[in-house]
Amino acid sequence: MAPFHKAIELQPTSQNSGENERVYQGLIDPEWVVVKIPHGGYILALLVDAVINFQSTTPHKDPIHVTAHFLRPSAVGNFEIRVRVLKSGKGFTNLTAELFQKNTLKVTTHMIFAHNGPVPGDKANLTLQSPSAYARRVPLYLHPSTAPRAGGQERWNFQPHIEWTREPDIEAKNKPNHPNRTDRSSIGGEGVEWGSWFGFSDKEEKITSTSIAFLVDIFSNLPSLLPRSERKGLVNSWFPTVTLSIEFKAPIPPPSEYHASRTVGVYSNGKFMHHPQGRHDAYVEIWTAPTNIGEGEPLDGWRDKQVCLAISTQMALAIPFDEASKRADRETARL
């Protein structure tokens, strides 16, 4: 069992077959699971870290976009990640990274790497950020130093390594009597929302592109946020991710008086839930945080200093935990 930066350690193997391919191996840590099943964001972080390692000696060191398809549940135990270059150009490199356990493909990804920042010769230099009135601001209401801490999540075995806060103003938007609710005269609708300052409690951790791949999958989803009257038949469930995409928006600023080292802001919303298997959507934003949770104080202009680091979308299901547990046991038995 290990803190996050230790739980994602990988080693290249001797199976490498050229400069455009590489194989890594490691061990899925038993602490980074939800009950019995490895957390999907943690699994994706392993894949992203493998490609970051593979690209570390190239001009295209930074992840720009990741698309993942989770084909089968992973299990605690040994794994292998196979990385392969599909196309390398002047501005971008396209790669695949696939996670195998006992030669069974569990997760497949397509990634785009580049330099996440201004490019020499780019005359347009197009950005949309503060102080523009069209730029989106950090969507959390409270400062991390004053936000109330959230309660525990018993299903998360990795709970000792993380901490997070509540956003009462966002929670209020999900109530049945809030103006966001729709009726026959409504146009559109805001769905349900969730937000939190979310951080690693281990002092040696820091926010990285790898940890962002984990953090985009940390939120309360649509089925969990609905009132009981709207989720009839939903039993104690696991919400496995089927597809997930990430766009990395900006470089991670170094720690400073306006940017925390191991904390981010997480905002999510969901609008649709359908057949089969309670299929539902999630949109997630990851923002820099001005301080770590419970530390510092609000400095003047702290909101204007925050940057959106990544956005993510995913499709997930709702599966009863007894069924999910059986699946996890079958996958573990194969290893």
Rank of each mutant, 00 (worst) to 15 (best):
L142D: 14
D183I: 05
I37T: 08
L86Q: 14
E171H: 07
P118W: 05
K271L: 09
H178D: 15
E21V: 08
T208Q: 02
E190N: 14
S224C: 06
V235L: 12
E204N: 15
R334N: 08
P227M: 07
E323L: 13
F4G: 03
K173V: 10
I170R: 06
T93R: 03
Q153L: 14
T67D: 11
M111Q: 13
E98A: 13
R22H: 06
W287S: 02
S256W: 02
K305W: 08
E154H: 08
I81W: 04
T332R: 15
L317F: 15
V51P: 04
Q129C: 02
T243R: 06
P120E: 09
T165R: 06
A213M: 00
K123C: 05
E331L: 03
S132T: 01
V119I: 14
K90S: 14
D217N: 07
F248I: 02
Q55W: 00
T208H: 00
A135K: 02
P251M: 01
L105W: 04
I170T: 13
T208E: 00
E204V: 07
I43W: 01
H274D: 13
L47W: 03
N20I: 01
R228F: 12
R22T: 08
P227S: 10
L140C: 10
N236A: 13
N94M: 14
N53T: 15
I37C: 00
V33A: 12
F113Y: 15
S196R: 07
P240V: 04
T58R: 13
P168W: 10
S220E: 13
Q25K: 14
G233Q: 07
L46N: 03
Q153F: 14
G199K: 03
V307K: 10
Q306A: 09
H39F: 12
L71T: 07
P148F: 00
T263S: 02
G301N: 09
D49Q: 15
N103F: 08
G77F: 09
R327H: 07
S186Y: 05
N269W: 03
A2K: 13
W287V: 01
Y134T: 02
T243S: 11
K61G: 00
G41V: 02
L215C: 07
I162A: 03
K271P: 04
E247D: 15
T165S: 07
I28W: 00
S201M: 06
K102S: 15
V66T: 07
T109R: 05
S145V: 07
D217C: 03
A316N: 05
R72S: 12
P320E: 11
N78V: 12
H274K: 14
R22K: 14
A328D: 03
N94A: 15
Q55K: 12
A75R: 12
V266A: 01
F200N: 04
T104D: 13
P223L: 06
W164I: 04
A213S: 09
L99N: 09
G117E: 07
K232L: 15
G40M: 00
E193S: 12
A7C: 08
L71Q: 11
I162G: 02
H280V: 02
I212L: 11
E31P: 00
K6C: 08
P240G: 08
